[in-house]
């Protein structure tokens, strides 16, 4: 069933590639790595035979626009890719007219970590997605799971699966999780209610595993500075020594950079080799920006961003 969908998808995109005279198309191709697909820059319509779409297409493709700025580019976008592109447009990193966007109603992406936890050694070809379920072929026979249970945490709380303002809105895949009921920031409230010491301990435990590999920064579709504050060394804000001060400094300042910009695509969280639940951090920033400035990132490319902007009536509870 999903093979038929992919075949139809390839033909639609190939037709658009040729008709629009695009220079390249950014989408996904299979890989030998278990439960992971490879983001791929296709440079000719023929190469699209290799294109796939399934529940492992977790990488946010908007990020690839920063590496491939020239020419007219087609991008296969899910809800979060589309919203990230809006932020890039707001920040004048890409021009809308150079993009041809094919929107795919996102079925919600699967958590590789959850699946591997449940089925150690699982390979991509053992997983069959259909409707609201995921079926895993095991040596003891197939096991069917609810897709919703196997989603990435950020996908479970996504309310923007259908990309808006696209040149081509594709039909929904024959597999999808039900509408999310939870909010991205749902877990933030209870943490905020915890006693301060417990919160401090929670984040000390989680963040102390950080190895400063900067994968969270590099995978972020919205991190595009030529020189990151982490790399400024004359003088240095922080040093690369793997110590709590540097780790905290990095995360707090990166979070501040994401305030009003983060589209909750969850890339930083799934990419983390240490499984640090970064949604708990970025969810906080997102919740505060929503509450204080009634703003949600990536919905409208024509609005000014909340932190490069102000209102005379802004809250001033923090001014002593």
């Amino acid at each position: 069933m999903s093979e038929d969908y992919t075949r139809a998808l390839v033909e639609t995109l190939r037709e658009a590639f040729e008709r629009e005279g695009l220079d390249r198309w950014i989408a996904y191709a299979p890989s030998r790595v278990p439960l992971r697909v490879r983001p791929t820059v296709f440079t000719s319509p023929d190469e699209l035979d290799n294109l796939i779409f399934n529940g492992f297409c977790v990488q946010n493709l908007a990020g690839y626009l920063k590496h491939h700025p020239e020419g007219r580019v087609g991008v296969l976008v899910k809800g979060c890719d589309r919203r990230a592109i809006n932020v890039l447009i707001q920040e004048k990193q890409v021009s809308r007219e150079n993009l041809f966007l094919a929107g795919i109603p996102c079925p919600g992406m699967l958590s590789r970590t959850r699946l591997l936890e449940e089925f150690p050694g699982l390979q991509s070809d053992q997983v069959e997605e259909s409707g609201e379920t995921v079926t895993v072929r095991t040596p003891d026979g197939p096991r069917t799971l609810s897709r919703d249970d196997m989603l990435l945490p950020t996908c479970r709380s996504c309310h923007h699966r259908i990309p808006e303002d696209v040149e081509l809105l594709l039909g929904p895949p024959p597999f999808a999780a039900p509408e999310a009921e939870m909010d991205f920031s749902a877990e933030v409230g209870p943490i905020g209610e915890m006693p301060r010491n417990q919160r401090a301990a929670l984040f000390a435990d989680e963040l102390s595993r950080c190895i400063l590999c900067y994968a969270c920064r590099n995978i972020c579709p919205l991190c595009y500075c030529d020189t990151c504050f982490t790399d400024v060394n004359q003088p240095a804000w922080m040093t690369p020594a793997l110590e709590p001060g540097n780790i905290f400094f990095y995360h707090v300042n990166r979070m501040m950079h994401m305030a009003g910009r983060c589209v909750a695509c969850g890339s930083c969280e799934w990419v983390c080799p240490e499984h640090i639940p970064l949604r708990l951090l970025y969810g906080k920033i997102t919740a505060d920006v929503a509450e204080l400035f009634s703003y949600e990132a990536g919905l409208d490319a024509t609005l000014p961003q909340p932190l490069s902007h102000f209102s005379e009536d802004d809250p001033d509870e923090h001014i002593g």
């Binding site: 791929t40 820059v41 491939h68 590999c213 994968a215 590099n218 995978i219």
Partner: peptide
């Protein structure tokens, strides 16, 4: 073309 330049 697809490398993110992270240190993983």
């Amino acid at each position: 073309a697809v490398c993110l330049g992270c240190g993983i």
